[in-house]
Design a protein around this nucleic acid. Sequence first.
DNA 1: TTGTATGCGTTATCAT
DNA 2: ATGATAACGCATACAA
Lengths: 361, 361
Amino acid sequence: MPAVPGPRRRPTLDTVARAVGVSRATVSNAYNRPDQLSAPLRARILAVADQLGYPGPDPVARSLATRRSAAVAFVLATPLSTAFSDPALTTALDGLASTVDEHGHGLLLVPGTADAGPRPEAVARAQADVIVLHSLADDVPALRAAGHRRLPLLVIDQPVVPTAARVEIDDEGGAAAAAEHLLRLGHRRVGVLALPFAPDHTEGPAGEARRATARYRVSRDRLAGYLRTLGAVGADPDAPPVWEATSSDREAGRRGGRWLLGRRPRPTALLCMSDELALGAVRAAGDLGLSVPGDVSVVGFDDTRAAAASDPPLTTIHQPLAEKGRRAGEIALGLLAGDPPGPPVRLPTHLVVRSSTAPPR
Amino acid sequence: MPAVPGPRRRPTLDTVARAVGVSRATVSNAYNRPDQLSAPLRARILAVADQLGYPGPDPVARSLATRRSAAVAFVLATPLSTAFSDPALTTALDGLASTVDEHGHGLLLVPGTADAGPRPEAVARAQADVIVLHSLADDVPALRAAGHRRLPLLVIDQPVVPTAARVEIDDEGGAAAAAEHLLRLGHRRVGVLALPFAPDHTEGPAGEARRATARYRVSRDRLAGYLRTLGAVGADPDAPPVWEATSSDREAGRRGGRWLLGRRPRPTALLCMSDELALGAVRAAGDLGLSVPGDVSVVGFDDTRAAAASDPPLTTIHQPLAEKGRRAGEIALGLLAGDPPGPPVRLPTHLVVRSSTAPPR
DNA sequence: TTGTATGCGTTATCAT
DNA sequence: ATGATAACGCATACAA
């Protein structure tokens, strides 16, 4: 049979079925349920399909029919540039991605805009079976959009959404452990280098008012952990100075570190809400001719790979980042399979003492 | 009208249309073409939809009808953990993501497996309007799968696919410039720290045979640029030692650096195919008590942010990473709009001299 | 401005 | 083992 080009319409299941002389159902089975038809027939179908240039079942049509997209949407607060430079995020994201990938699911990234979080329309249009929300501010529009979809939701770290599954860590406890470590060493004048309290590009000293309106739970909880612990022993009778960074990266940390270390009396130690910020603070100390931990102690948060590899190696709060991602992936797959949300999964943190902390001089 | 729960079937366009007493088309227009109906009617429709808990047009059904997914698939060679730790990749990816996001398109990540590249089925199932292939080995199965889809293809860096659009840089020229810089400084014994030649976890000295079967064009071209230039002046009469790293990260670079700097006579300079490898090599020099550039010169490739920030700041080959991503994004959007592939876009590279190179002692 | 008719490409159910 | 038929939920000419 010579190839009759015809109007060159793209072939579909039906095209193949006609060519072979079977029904569409049978062709469909040839692809999806090899055991439902005889091997020779299947071979013939596949051969004809190939010769016709049939690309295989259309994913979108299949999704419509099965009500499954085989993808999980990952919604994040920031543009990808910011996100990718944050090791705490990428480590968790990788855990999530490999888990869902192993089960045949793709990962649809829905990045945030620079100042308003993810676009609600992007969330509304996401072709996915589950939506994973990562560390969004409490009241971003994307949240409503996610709720409107009738999809299972999973929240990592925050915010708290009533019907959503949750994976998080003990931020307040971790922060408290960090502060406690410094108190034990004898520090009494401590500065705080904070993650953003709101997605509004603010950077600078954060007073009571600012802190009270914080829209990131993680920042709120870590700060609470710090302050509660410092306050408990009556350390730092004046409230400790708090600098709010504009994002979790070293340059932002460096700016904050310079400001904090410029206070008088100078803090003898810095509590940093992320390792990247801490690494920036270490550099700031260098800028000012101060040695770490000789003149100033620095403690980070997250225990990323960079923390262990830095000079000096960073004392920090460990959180199981990769596991957080994997657990999130497993839960997402579970939700997708119909499991109910279940109680929040709260992963443990613990203090890792390295060489960036020492007693004050 | 009291809410009659009924069988609680999820509402569709049709549900809303019936409730309002209009046709589906009108409800559809209410969402997609507000100008096609009166404002009051639209308001009424939206109100009823909201009250019914209608989540808005189903993205999959919409995709089927419009033949558009509003997403671009990004297929990469490695698992995300590897990918995210590579600044050269993430920078480009961010450029791509922001470009397509601005135009309302999502980004579907299709990660590779550890040793066989991306799973072909994952590529076959990807719900996207364009497929972007990033730096895959020449003959991975995913390539066939991508070709089978009748979607526009865009290749970043490699491999060369006949019908695909292409964005790349002048790898060989850049590498040649790096080598030339060293020759000008007077170096004659030069070692090469190479990116992987194939996705098979190999690490170690790479002889002729191995190099001849290289499946990554980028590695091949950069090596060719190095060797061609070194050979031209008859430098290094014995072929320069080449170490193949297992991935582009510092630890791998460090191992390679230690081996290269352990050769006798010791190379006075190292040509590294990425900044991350170069940074590892610098550390290796430190391990051996050698100073950079005093005892050994090191030149990188990519000009990532880390290159400028390192100690010492790295001499390297600049490539416009963010622009590469943005261009790729624009081209992807163009393909998606029906533009023909067009000729390959080849971005320029240039040498950036910083402080990691100096004349040999 | 609104409605009608049709197509999008597949899977699933139930016969045969 | 294979086929007929009905979903799946929406968009879009075109007609009214």
